[in-house]
Design a protein around this nucleic acid. Structure first.
Lengths: 207, 207
DNA sequence: GTCACGATGTATCAGTTCGATATATCAAAC
DNA sequence: GTTTGATATATCGAACTGATACATCGTGAC
């Protein structure tokens, strides 16, 4: 488990919440929504879609509307099982939830969860990163005298990057804590409407 | 090309410069030297060592000294071809030199290159990252109104992380430029001796 | 009008890597 | 004495990537 496809599956289900889509478009939206930080290939997307179809998580939309025989395309839409599975995956906080890929995808769909889940994921991610910080730190003290100056600089930079992400997460957690207690569950926009209500996550760092 | 094994190969050759080693130890040093940021598995290391042995880049050290039949271990040492190949790989600035993995390994062995090569690699890496910054930026402006606040925050954080690394690289480049012109080629320590002469790369960020 | 070319769209495959695991030895604990 | 855990080499299946094949559509050049 903790396979890459689990992450892909979550991402696909999340995107299909917005609108039915076909593979090609999914891939574009995937690589756009998840930033330039994640690239899914067709080699994993299409097989994944087939599996999800077989499992009943998505359904093949019948040729709608347009009478003109357009270019062949297979439009997938979310089923009830799919929505349910999405909620489960997003909320469960499994093992893959806190690693780099998993967290990114979970975070991108935070708008569809409740504050408690968000907090749990954010805190899980943070403690995961804190472990990494410890690893870096002990490596640094251990090797302080044994390695090259450049290697040292590399470790130092790596350490600071992770520390920075920890600070970012801490701000997010504080924001959640400050916002959540009053509003039990964020209503979240049902469809395409942009939402646009970020909970004060202007993580300013420079200027 | 640009296979993962190329990176592994470079790392192995680099480590063997310090001392002959066997597989298990190589893996430990690998994951230590390259920080917690890179994990090589046995599944790639052992096959890689065999290939390198076949290509004559490394040699199997005959059982030395200790008369006691120790636990079976295969100690590899660098050959002349290996050293040559290492220098080539490290200096060539190929396609894989500037991606995340490749750059880390190259950087970790900067102590064994000359200033010109260092500059070339640093600048290559920087422009690679600047491309990524552009990607993030356009994605941000494109999606500013279309995506969830959390997705936005994710992109923003990603963008700032990359920008930060660009600044880091710029400092390193400045340091190289300031140091290099006078001293044409850094002598670099021949063996185990720790070097310890980092060219002022105290990239302080917080306090 | 048509033709070339690039974007759209689905699909698969070879090559490569990872994670888990098997096997075995040794040191120290108990 | 035997159980545990680190050392050490090795392999295998499952999975992913990058490339590619194949087909259709839109559009601009001529």
């Amino acid at each position: 488990m903790a396979k890459r496809s689990d992450v892909l599956e979550l991402a696909v289900l999340g995107l299909l919440h917005e609108a039915p889509m076909h593979g090609y478009e999914l891939r574009k939206r995937l690589n756009l929504t998840l930033g330039a930080l994640r690239a899914f290939s067709y080699g994993s997307l299409y097989p994944c879609l087939k599996e999800m179809l077989a499992e009943g998580l998505v359904a093949q939309q019948p040729e709608v509307a347009v009478p003109v025989a357009k270019r062949s395309r297979i439009v997938y839409e979310l089923t009830a099982e799919g929505k349910e599975h999405f909620a489960t995956l997003l909320g469960e906080g499994g093992p893959s939830t806190w690693d780099d890929d998993g967290f990114g995808v979970h975070f991108a769909f935070f708008g569809r969860t409740d504050a408690a889940t968000r907090l749990r994921i954010l805190e899980g991610r943070r403690s995961r990163l804190e472990e990494r910080v410890d690893g870096f730190r002990s490596a640094l003290t251990r090797s302080r005298e044994r390695v090259d100056g450049y290697t040292l600089a590399l470790h130092q930079h790596g350490l600071e990057s992770v520390e920075r992400e920890v600070r970012w997460l801490s701000e997010l957690i504080d924001d959640e804590r400050r916002t959540a207690p009053t509003t039990p569950v964020t209503p979240l926009t049902p469809s395409v409407r942009p939402t646009a209500r970020a909970p004060r996550l202007d993580n300013k760092e420079h200027s």
